[in-house]
Design a protein around this nucleic acid. Sequence first.
RNA 1: GGCCCGAUGGUCAAGCGGCUAAGACACCGCCCUUUCACGGCGGUAACACGGGUUCGAUUCCCGUUCGGGUCACCA
Length: 561
Amino acid sequence: MTDYRKIAALLFPQIHKTPEDYAAQYPARSLPEGAAVTRFAPSPTGFIHIGAVYAAMIAQRLARQSGGVFYLRIEDTDKKREVEDGIAQIVRGLEAFGIVADEGFVPGGETGAYGPYQQSHRGDIYQCYAKDLVERGLAYPCFCTEEDLNSVREKQEAQKLRTGYYGAFAHCRELSDEEIENKVRAKTPFVLRLKSPGREDRRISFADKIKGKIEMPENDQDLVLLKRDGIPTYHFAHAVDDHLMGTTLVVRGDEWISSTPIHMQLFQALGFKPPKYAHIAPIMKEENGSKRKLSKRKDPEAAVLYYYAEGYPAASVLEYLDTISNSNFEDWRRANPAADRWEFPFQLSKMSQSGALFDLNKLNDVSKNCISRMTAREVYEGIASWAREYDPAFAALLEKDPDYAKAILSIDRGGSKPRKDLAKWADAKAYMAYFYQELYQPDYTLPEQVAPADAAAVLAAYEKVYDPEDDKEAWFAKVKALCEPLGFSPDVKAYKKDPSGFKGHVGDLSTVIRIAVTSRRNTPDLCAIMGLLGRDACFQRLRAAKEYYQSAGASARAGVK
RNA sequence: GGCCCGAUGGUCAAGCGGCUAAGACACCGCCCUUUCACGGCGGUAACACGGGUUCGAUUCCCGUUCGGGUCACCA
């Protein structure tokens, strides 16, 4: 007859607390009815994955929406994969997207009454529950070596049996008290395994909040609870922590679905009420015609830093993620363009069952809309702070005269039909370049239908009438007035009906001026641009272009002869 | 291979027994327009396949195929 208490004491001599002690230390939370306690529980293994932000964002939303708590727990039970500064990277990465936990790890440290929120600091807690399991005959030490395990697996494979440590293959289940005592005394390393009460021929089901009812065979594997070093495995830590911390809803990637039977079993063995689960489908990437999960290793766009470096505003990435998470988000946004995204009534049941391909086009579109809703000041701040890090020279240029930059960004901003030129801060430099002498690179290439000599004539004439004081109407009236004497039609429609007799229309003519001033065929309102550039710069550019076309016209004539 | 999950246009997706099968992004055309952008209008484009159930299947059931996940002393 096995004496479980004796074995437990032998295995965990230093543990004196009991589960009751911890139950008292971490009382149930007093929260309003229906409030969800959710969490984000990453491993500090390097940069934050976009999928992690996605999951964290959903968990946070669910907690906030229900008046609950969202906390950040660090799952650092695998020292091999741990990365230096990992925790700070996570906290900072989330903060960059406005995700700050209510509890657990937050910028500046750790907070909350249910900690520690770092698994490596919870060793005694796990050991205590492990000891309890041993005392109750639900867990046992396993002294098998890696080689033992391998040979078992080979045997199983040869016989085409399910592999793993279960049933009759779980040799250490049968160890006598004496054998255990001897091995422990001899300091033989061991892991602690669950004595699984499950049976493969029985089924277990649970109601996933996203995927609905999922039915699977029970787990009958004697899973490792504590590793050789005494550190818990994910499964065990999950059960203990989420119970003690009062988690009511676990939001996690759907790669965990297949281990949920294990978790249900663990919760039961420990006497805990299991949380609800919401398994979210991963964000996918297309490669060579097939889908696969965005990979941290292979895909730069998996890293949240990528979006940051490209200059996508955090708000854009979040909104993009919102559109993926609930397909009615876009409709809601159209109906509530100015509303805070927190006001959107998010529903887990509206989440997609299968993974969505990451769509850069869509991100760009969402981001353009986001940026178009911002004020010039916000856009300026966004560009400047991005540039400080990724394009210091450009940042310096902007910061030399913030008001000028803001004025540029104000052109056609606001109103019901705002421009949507910028998808990311990195687009700003090209968009603004011609406003800065330091960045300006003249390019006088004309549209095909305009001859250099005509361009020269247009500029020569325009130079004489240009008045920086003109408002938009006066400005355009002058451009129009130039048309007929120079052989252009002031009326685009009339020209299109009958192009004969004209060299072009006002559009062509103003294009000449536009190119002369900005070296661009397409720009926002030219009058506003010239106003910002100032009279000196405008005259200077107008003249330079005119001279260019004059000499080009001359050489063209020379060539013809 | 076992076990799970999934399958509507190029992408994201509405749909939940009877619809000319929404909408968004992308693409194309037209309109507006001094250019662009914005906006408006329109267009190309989809229910993976085979069996059932039913008066009737995109929708329900079963197979097939395909895609994804998982089978660690990693999370």
